[in-house]
Amino acid sequence: MGEVIVVTSGKGGVGKTTTTANLGTGLAQLGYKVALVDADIGLRNLDVVLGLENRIVYDITDVTGGHCRLRQALIKDKRYEGLFLLPAAQTKDKTAVSPDQMKVLCGDLSQEFDYVIIDCPAGIEQGFRNAIAGADKAIVVTTPEVSAVRDADRIIGLLEAAELREPKLIINRVRQKMVAAGDMMNIDDIIDILAIDLLGVVPEDEMVIITTNRGEAVIQDDRSRSGMAFRNIVRRITGEQVPLLNLEEGGLFSKIRRFIGLK
């Protein structure tokens, strides 16, 4: 039986889809069989992020509606043997799938895959309800901004009310220079407010945009700092203990400030 993990955030644009793509790719790199499910019906995106947009024949609503078998709708990744995508429908709306159908779907997928990762839509309406219905665990993605942290807090409350206990947090798009200057909330600030376990911290990185432009995941890039951060998160998901990435970029000012004890 595989593990079903939902990636959620409340707020849009914090990096749920990018995170889902990277975690899936990273787990597949380690040799696991992974199914990525795009639960954002009507706003399909995981396919373009993974570079698989030209291969879609069937989508999630065809499976839940009984128009095709699950295997027919799963798209095999170009690079990694064990990575598959179940795309969202683009022309239907969120009511096309029900939470009960999602439970059945996730149950079926977890029979065949080691990890099933669900990319949740933004918001707290039915799309969210569908996405979490079949999940065993939840990952909450936020950025160090008041709006994203507030929405993350709301989502954590809703996850716990739905019996998805102990969600784990990923803090995305951290700008270390701003943190060092005291102009961005740091990891401790956010953990202090949200009071949940930290799964990882991903620095803001132009390479995410560059790799996504090509339909690749930044975790495939060995040198990028965000790729390194995602690789660490993947190892933590598999149960390994990995220390946090040191985000200090060692700018002259932050060095001096630490030297004279002002930070």
Partner: peptide, 23 residues
Amino acid sequence: FNRDSGASKNIAKERLRLVLVHD
């Protein structure tokens, strides 16, 4: 080194703390 003495992240944190009590 700190441009503004009231670092803006402290303002963010304080505002969040208050709004989350209500939320």
